[in-house]
Design a protein around this nucleic acid. Structure first.
Length: 304
DNA sequence: ATGTCAATTTCGAATTGA
């Protein structure tokens, strides 16, 4: 069965805010070909359903579900070698919400929630209120998913910088930003209190890890980043966490998205004495901007 | 406030959202 297969071999699940699926299609295809995630959650498609490049994605070996919207938002779930099975489109309790920000599907033996949490700026204001209301609906839904006992990954752009210390280059200029407000952070903490495991933070307990670099002010060349793309693991999946990282090389491409793909690798439950990762070179390279592509090539070569 | 992108309207600069 598919579920058993997912336990036997490792499974890579990624999230990537593409900031425009049409303008970023070449990057997406390049990334899929090189990193070959089993599941990819995409955000900010900025395209209507008819504008989703399903043919190119199929040709790359992926099945997909997507929920588009004109100009803004839009989310998609890609599954390598097959079609994801949709379980939900939009959060419960928001029939009047027309924004495409949540899609949920089963693939490769796990249930994946793909989310694009509202940015919330400027704050205070109606956009921030919408962010918090959306977050509250998400919290409620997440609780149900966690309690279900199913293997679940909640992956996406949360638009929350969890802490000042490790999740941003310098909070000084961001104090008023919606991404750092206590109301945003408290809700993210409430999510973790439900029992979810923040995979990147668990994997890198005391390192600064970034997933987003603002287009403004040379943030990328200065590595002035924020960690706002998160992958949360259910109780069942947390012990299977084998690796995590950020594909920084994608952020370094010409005309890149302001986010880099962020991923987790899940494997069999680790035996008590076993040390190290199944893919140590991949893991080390993941946080190193310059060497990442070279590492990826090396890993590919080694596997061939 | 600054700064830089992408998408839209409507054919190209202004607006909006991030």
């Amino acid at each position: 069965m598919a579920a058993r297969k997912s336990v036997a071999r490792s499974l890579r699940i990624a999230t990537f805010n593409v900031n425009g699926i049409r303008s970023r299609l070449p990057h997406l295809l390049q990334w899929l070909a090189k990193e070959q995630p089993d599941i990819a959650c995409l955000q900010e498609l900025k395209a209507v359903d008819e504008g989703f490049p399903i043919d190119a994605i199929r040709d790359a070996g992926y099945g997909a579900l997507w929920h588009g919207q004109r100009s803004w938002n839009g989310v998609a779930i890609l599954a390598r070698g097959g079609d994801p099975i949709e379980s939900r489109r939009g959060l419960p309790g928001a029939r009047d919400d027309v924004q495409s920000r949540y899609l949920e599907a089963a693939a490769h033996g796990v249930l994946v929630g793909c989310l694009y949490l509202p940015n919330g700026n400027p704050q205070p204001g109606p956009k921030f209120d919408y962010k918090l209301a959306w977050f509250d609906r998400f919290l409620k839904h997440a609780q149900g998913l966690f309690d279900s006992g199913h293997p679940v990954v909640l992956a996406g752009d949360y638009n929350v910088v969890p802490t000042d210390e490790l999740d941003i280059y310098d909070p000084k200029h961001w104090k008023k930003d919606a991404l750092l407000q206590p109301e945003s952070r408290d809700r993210y903490a409430a999510l973790l209190d439900q029992g979810w495991t923040d995979a990147l933070r668990t994997r890198f307990p005391d390192e600064k890890v970034f997933t987003f670099w603002d287009y403004f002010r040379n943030h990328w060349p200065r590595n002035a980043g924020l960690r706002i793309d998160h992958l949360l693991l259910s109780r069942d999946l947390a012990p299977k966490l084998r690796g995590a990282g950020v594909d920084r090389w994608v952020r370094d491409l010409p005309s890149a998205s302001d986010h880099a793909p962020t991923w987790v690798e899940l494997g069999p439950k680790r035996a008590a004495k076993k040390q190290g990762s199944e893919h140590p070179s991949r893991e080390k390279g993941a946080l190193t901007p310059v060497s990442a592509p070279r590492k990826a090539r090396a890993v590919k070569k080694a596997r061939a």
